[in-house]
Amino acid sequence: MVSPNSRSEYESRMHRVLAYIDQHLDQALDLYTLAEVAHFSQFHFHRLFSAWMGETLGDYLRRRRVEVAAMRLAAQPRSTVLNMALSVGFGSAEAFTRAFRNRFGCSPTTWRMQQATQRRANSNPGQVNSKMSQAPATLSAEHVAFRTPNMEAIMNVKLIDRQPVTVAYLRHLGPYGEPISLFWQNTYYPWAVTNKLLERARYGISHDDPSITAAEQCRYDACAEVAPDFVASGGAFKATIPGGRYAVLAFKGGGEQVGEAWAALLRDWLPASGLQLDARPCFEYYPTDAACDPQTGAFECEICIPVVPL
């Protein structure tokens, strides 16, 4: 019989490997290196990974590389296919195109054109802008205003420099949307009560783009900001959200609208910003004073994406 502590240790090590992979997609990720990250023997790691993830290490690496590239293709239209291939660890545009076509059924160039067409068709700037509010004035920031031909309104995005923060988190694996709301209510809330974390700032980390990754493979972390020496328990794990420069868009609305705000930031603002994503995770930040209306389901948060110069 596997003890809960033993299972938690296995899961913690696998989370560490997945985070390492996402942070080093542009590098060679060999079995030896990843086994070292997991603190498992190289001889057994491949089998353990396949059993835990339901796909081989090689299949997982190829999937993550092309899925991250697919998101960047839409968000960084001025980057070449070759540069995109190199940024996720492919040695050539040809190898990248083959892998991309196997996953999405079309070439990277066609995918990018389809995403641009869909973005223009779905553009509803008045609605998106009406759901944005100014972030708390306590965050000093550089305001960036931007306009596209499809947007009559100006979207205000702030560039801020965040410090690294330690979080304790619970992971949800599966579809986003309503299941995430239920996860916060039914899983995170009781855990936060037990650990006296209700008054701490919260973070929601979406590790996958649900428009690209299969719903059953999407990962989401519900996090509470904690002290570095906090001891995680109750199925929780600890991680550090990296510091650095982030583009921040304040959101106010319901769960059905937050996806529109994410799309507006990633698909409309980012391509015209002169910036690009890097390997740090995107997340939603919920300050301690963030409002939430249990009657309507409306809530406030800051959508944060990591950015570096293009």
Rank of each mutant, 00 (worst) to 15 (best):
residue 49 F to N: 15
residue 51 A to C: 09
residue 51 A to D: 04
residue 58 G to H: 11
residue 58 G to L: 14
residue 59 D to N: 13
residue 60 Y to K: 00
residue 62 R to K: 15
residue 63 R to D: 00
residue 65 R to N: 10
residue 69 A to D: 02
residue 69 A to H: 02
residue 70 A to Q: 03
residue 70 A to N: 01
residue 71 M to D: 05
residue 72 R to F: 05
residue 73 L to S: 04
residue 77 P to I: 15
residue 78 R to P: 10
residue 79 S to C: 09
residue 79 S to H: 08
residue 81 V to R: 02
residue 82 L to G: 00
residue 84 M to A: 01
residue 84 M to V: 11
residue 84 M to D: 04
residue 84 M to P: 03
residue 88 V to E: 00
residue 88 V to Q: 03
residue 89 G to I: 13
residue 90 F to Q: 01
residue 92 S to W: 06
residue 94 E to M: 13
residue 94 E to I: 15
residue 94 E to W: 14
residue 94 E to A: 15
residue 95 A to Y: 02
residue 95 A to G: 06
residue 95 A to R: 12
residue 97 T to P: 04
residue 98 R to L: 15
residue 102 N to W: 06
residue 104 F to A: 04
residue 104 F to T: 08
residue 105 G to S: 10
residue 106 C to G: 05
residue 107 S to I: 08
residue 107 S to W: 07
residue 112 R to W: 09
residue 112 R to F: 05
residue 113 M to W: 01
residue 114 Q to S: 03
residue 115 Q to K: 11
residue 116 A to P: 00
residue 117 T to Q: 12
residue 119 R to E: 02
residue 122 N to G: 03
residue 122 N to H: 13
residue 126 G to V: 01
residue 127 Q to C: 05
residue 128 V to S: 07
residue 129 N to E: 05
residue 129 N to W: 12
residue 130 S to K: 01
residue 131 K to E: 01
residue 133 S to L: 08
residue 134 Q to I: 02
residue 134 Q to S: 01
residue 135 A to C: 09
residue 135 A to G: 05
residue 136 P to L: 06
residue 136 P to S: 00
residue 137 A to Q: 12
residue 143 H to A: 13
residue 144 V to W: 11
residue 148 T to D: 04
residue 148 T to H: 11
residue 149 P to R: 15
residue 150 N to F: 13
residue 152 E to P: 12
residue 152 E to W: 12
residue 154 I to C: 06
residue 154 I to W: 06
residue 155 M to G: 11
residue 156 N to V: 01
residue 156 N to H: 13
residue 157 V to Q: 07
residue 157 V to S: 09
residue 157 V to I: 08
residue 157 V to N: 05
residue 158 K to M: 15
residue 160 I to S: 11
